Simulated scan of single mutants.
Amino acid sequence: MATQRIRELTLDLRVERFPYHQPFRISGHVFTETALLVAEISDGMHVGRGEGAGVYYLGDDIDHMVAEAERVRAAIEGGATREALQQLLPPGGARNALDCAFWDLEAKQAGRPAWALAGLDAPKPLRSTMTLGADRPEVMAKAALAFDPATPVKVKLTGDVEEDIARVAAIRAARPDAWIGVDANQGYTIETLPELLPVLVAHGVAVLEQPLRRGREADLDGLVRPLPFAADESAVTLGDTAALVGRFDVVNIKLDKCGGLTEGLAIAHEARRLGLEVMVGNMMGSSLSMAPSYLVGQLCDIVDLDGPIFLARDREPGVVYHGGMIDCPEAIWGGA
């Protein structure tokens, strides 16, 4: 029998910038746009796409992502596989873009959607939070009222205890029946956190995300958690997951942090094995970022895939938000 010739791969990389409707504020940062690395891997017949937004607090900006992806161009065009990519590049936005491009290409080559290749059930629409950037309490309360009544609300805090308490109180008053989670983005210390916690409990907040700085996880040892704590900046890769037990209750998986869908799925399964709940988040990418994250979301307790709502423009086709839910057509990414 003749040996089938393996098609050579070509890699195309480009930078695309997506401005926001308005500045987005979190603890210690204000963002006005997302710069994305778009990777396309072609075998001459099929093209797989992926994008990476990087990890701002790790110095993983657009220049770093481009340099990292270029560093492995020869290996990819020389026949490196998605599995090999996990050792060729460290976690980060570049590996995310390339890993997701490989998944998309493999789906097209196999004639099977990416969810099937990943061993998942056919994806269903998911309830997704919508995020309120940190602002004056009255502004955030007004913005919360503009969401669909069924939409869960995620609230960005800044570490200013009095202002944060006022933010939570105003939003709860505006949305008395809403699911509310708060994200401190490393803004608190073990000394200031105790003042915030009883207020969160009193206002029925469902989860507190990343209260302390990355690297200060041991400060949580012995702390009684009166509501679930979620690890974001403290949970970058699969290797970080085991150390969360006893300090956090939820792990927030972001494909830009862990370096793609391959490791994102591995983290979800490992977190379940360790008794942790699972959340999927995003680094403010376009719908091309949300699509592979949507597959991880099928395994999650909390879904936070609202990045495109902040963009002045998105891709076509894009994800659909309706009635507090996100739906992701296969035409965006990962279809056969």
Rank of each mutant, 00 (worst) to 15 (best):
A2P: 15
R7S: 08
L13E: 00
R17K: 11
H21Y: 10
F24N: 12
V30T: 15
T34A: 13
A39H: 09
S42P: 02
S42Y: 01
G52P: 10
M65T: 08
V66R: 14
A67S: 14
E77Y: 14
G79Y: 05
L85K: 10
Q87M: 02
L88E: 08
L89T: 06
G93T: 14
G93P: 08
R95W: 03
C100Y: 01
D104K: 05
L105S: 03
Q109E: 14
G111Y: 04
A114H: 08
A118T: 01
L126Y: 08
R127H: 06
S128M: 06
A134F: 11
R136I: 08
V139W: 05
A144L: 07
D148N: 14
A150W: 00
P152T: 00
G159A: 08
E162K: 15
R167L: 10
A170S: 12
A170K: 14
A170P: 13
A170R: 13
A170H: 12
I171T: 10
D177T: 11
W179G: 00
W179H: 12
D183W: 11
Y188D: 10
I190H: 06
L193G: 09
P194H: 03
L196V: 05
G204F: 03
V207K: 03
E209G: 06
A218N: 13
L220E: 10
V236L: 13
G239D: 15
A243R: 11
A243D: 10
L244N: 10
V245R: 06
D249T: 11
D256N: 15
L265D: 05
I267P: 03
L274R: 09
L276Q: 02
V278D: 00
V280R: 02
M284I: 11
A291Q: 06
S293R: 01
L299N: 10
D301Y: 11
P308Y: 07
F310R: 15
V320K: 07
Y321P: 06
H322E: 15
G323W: 08
M325L: 14
P329T: 01
